[in-house]
């Protein structure tokens, strides 16, 4: 009688969802994304100013990005060590070399919102001297 009763309990259908496989799958996905995420990151971290603007439309080539950090240091998205600040003269040198060989290259300034306005204008003047007819200012869509 007692044993019978017990058996009845064990045979009762399980009421809750077995979450172990879900956790398992999630962990596997997490590992995959943890591995791939650092590979996707690149560039210098800069707080972009917020403004409504369009994306670069239908440009064939990757734009040349000159970044300016809050402390006024310049970076460019070329070369082995892109996170190494470079003097302005070196950056304009690189820009003019690229534009001489590929005049259609688009140049974008990736400036921190806190950078003094004068600094950005100086940079733009130098870029224009290096041969960029017009310069894009990178922005972030407003939150």
């Amino acid at each position: 009688m007692r044993g019978n009763f017990r058996r009845k309990v064990t045979k009762k259908p399980m009421a809750e969802i077995n979450v172990v496989p879900y956790i398992d799958v999630m962990l596997v996905l997490l590992v995959v994304f943890m591995v791939t995420a650092p590979l996707l990151m690149q560039g210098v971290k800069v707080d972009l100013p917020q403004a409504p603007s369009g994306p670069i439309d239908n440009k064939d080539d990757e734009p040349l990005i000159v970044s300016v950090k809050k402390d006024g240091s310049y970076y460019i998205n070329l070369g082995r060590d892109q996170k190494q600040p470079k003097p302005l003269s070196e950056i304009t040198g690189i820009v003019s070399k690229v534009l001489r060989n590929k005049p259609s290259t688009f140049v974008v300034v990736w400036g921190d919102a806190q950078v003094p306005y004068g600094k950005v204008v100086t940079l733009m003047t130098e870029l224009q001297k290096a041969g960029a007819p017009s310069v894009g200012m990178a922005t972030e869509p407003p939150r």
Partner: peptide, 22 residues
């Protein structure tokens, strides 16, 4: 899961920033 990623990982992702023409 990780297989298809390989080729796209080798070529660095391009950053296509939003911009204002100045």
């Amino acid at each position: 899961v990780g297989w298809g990623w390989e080729s796209s990982l080798v070529t660095p992702r391009k950053v296509m920033p939003n911009y204002v023409e100045a």
